[in-house]
Nucleic acid binder design. Structure first.
Length: 111
DNA sequence: GAACTGACTCCAA
DNA sequence: TTTGGAGCCAGTT
């Protein structure tokens, strides 16, 4: 973990930290922006290792379907939903409503 | 020191 | 149309 200057995890953290409040992003979008070969896999692993990083809003990262797959990894399963709703994102049945409208693409935002 | 697990997505049948 | 399998890196045991 010492030479983490070039690992993909840090890159994922940087992108996730850039997600604006009230917006959500997908694993695939981040992977695509970073040009990861493994695709979304790497992003999911990065999120798993993101524990302890307050600047990494993992609750804003959802799967391709807009479902809160990683909610169970938070302090509480409902904590992720609560955080999103607190930012103005409506969640129903563990799924983001208007996901297409709230979707934030790094490639498009940084364009 | 080595092996297994883990928060996904895409392609093919 | 739906279902199944493959690919990758880092952290933990």
């Amino acid at each position: 973990m010492k030479r983490s200057s070039e690992n993909y995890f840090d890159l994922v953290y940087e992108v996730v930290k850039l997600i604006p409040t009230g917006r959500v992003c997908t694993y695939g979008a981040i992977a695509n922006y970073l040009g990861l070969k493994s695709g979304a896999r790497m992003v999911g692993y990065a999120m798993n290792a993101a524990h302890g990083l307050p600047e990494v809003p993992a609750h804003r990262v959802v799967n391709r379907q807009g479902v809160l797959t990683g909610k169970h990894h938070f302090s509480s399963p409902e904590m992720m939903q609560n955080l999103l709703e607190n930012e103005g994102v409506t969640i129903e049945n563990d799924q983001v409503l208007d996901f297409d409208h709230l979707f934030w693409d790094p490639s498009r935002a940084l364009l």
